[in-house]
Simulated scan of single mutants.
Amino acid sequence: MVVKKKEKNEVVYLVVSAAITIFCLFFIYYVKYTNQGLNLAFFNLNSVGNVLNLIFSLLVLLGILIYFFKNYEQLQSIVILGFVVIMTTALAFAYILTKFQLPLKTVYFLGQPLQKIITGGLFTAYQFIQIILICLLWSSSFGRGNILYFRSVINSIIIILLLFVFTFFYSASLNDKVEKEIIKKTKSNIAVVLGAAVWSNNKASPSLASRLNKAIELYRLGYIGKIQLTGSNAPGELPEAEVAYRYIRHKEINEEDILLETKTTSTTEQVSFVKFSLFDKKSAEIIIISDKYHLPRVIEICRFYDVIATPVSSDLHFSTRNNIYHRIRETIAITIFWLFAI
């Protein structure tokens, strides 16, 4: 048998690599759910992200199995183990950063907390290294020398781009479904207005104002009975929910029907708030209001949390250039959420 020709160390390296890969698969599932305040009882393979995690891990395991029964001179088993260790290290550090706050709480970059960016970078590094390993294992029988590694990196970039393309068109299909949603007309419904940017002098941005205008419209038409405002603040400004409250309080809305939540800092946290704070209010329906380009990610996060809500788009329109920009940004955000639930 070919197995007998392999050195004992090679077999050990491969077995350890496979074991760590399996561990990483279960660990990433654990991290995704516990970081969102959920236990693994909520786990399901109907989630696109969970399926992707499984597929990538299976491709690594199958590649290791094929390597085990063949001799690939251009790829050594110690290299396979090295890649597995590096990707596991990136995953471990990413997890640590989700549990411990660095002294970067007030440091922002491109409008995002720096620690969140670093954490996302480590998760991304884990996934990119895993994809490179997949390409190495599956192309090793065709590659030669150093060209194998170069080709694997290029193939990995292509795979990531194809994943983004898939996500782009998938989110577009969700937008089509949003336009067909029907809301039952009843005052027991609660509209959740997702927070958006606050401009200088604590003025609601066009995005936030448009979402609020949609909530006001639904309230006046009798489709909802309460408006839940959400969103915390960046340094030096009022919470998004507070700015939203100031915007709508004089718009013929009963103040008793306006609810405020001022601690959430992201779409994920806002859906989590809906899950754990609004589902006990016996409303006929939860309606989540945001901009059209943003709703596909909202829908995917709701599926992850097992939140049943009706997405409603604001009437805000963008130029073609801005619309493309927002679509691309949301495509990246959805992909990252699928893979890491952040």
Results as ranks from 00 to 15, higher is better:
139 S>P: 00
75 L>V: 06
116 K>F: 10
142 F>H: 13
70 K>C: 08
71 N>T: 01
114 L>H: 03
120 G>M: 12
137 L>Y: 04
97 L>P: 06
114 L>N: 05
91 L>K: 13
123 F>I: 09
115 Q>F: 00
80 I>Q: 00
90 A>G: 09
100 F>C: 13
102 L>Y: 07
141 S>N: 08
130 Q>H: 00
81 L>H: 02
132 I>P: 00
126 Y>L: 09
85 V>K: 06
118 I>V: 15
153 V>T: 08
111 G>W: 05
122 L>T: 09
140 S>G: 03
91 L>C: 10
149 Y>W: 06
73 E>G: 11
150 F>Q: 05
68 F>C: 04
120 G>S: 11
108 Y>F: 15
156 S>M: 14
109 F>R: 15
129 I>P: 01
134 I>F: 02
78 I>S: 14
149 Y>N: 00
100 F>D: 13
106 T>R: 14
116 K>L: 12
92 A>L: 15
156 S>R: 09
104 L>I: 11
119 T>V: 10
152 S>T: 04
130 Q>V: 01
79 V>L: 04
137 L>E: 02
127 Q>Y: 13
114 L>Y: 07
102 L>V: 10
70 K>N: 14
66 I>V: 15
94 A>H: 07
155 N>M: 15
130 Q>K: 03
112 Q>Y: 12
73 E>M: 01
150 F>I: 13
142 F>T: 12
97 L>W: 04
101 Q>M: 15
72 Y>G: 03
149 Y>A: 00
127 Q>V: 11
66 I>P: 03
153 V>Q: 02
97 L>T: 07
142 F>D: 06
111 G>S: 05
100 F>W: 14
91 L>Y: 10
98 T>I: 06
101 Q>F: 12
69 F>W: 01
76 Q>L: 07
91 L>W: 09
156 S>W: 05
134 I>R: 04
99 K>E: 13
77 S>N: 12
131 I>F: 04
155 N>W: 15
67 Y>L: 12
124 T>A: 13
117 I>D: 05
130 Q>A: 07
65 L>N: 06
147 I>R: 14
75 L>R: 11
107 V>Y: 14
142 F>Y: 14
113 P>H: 05
98 T>Q: 11
148 L>Q: 06
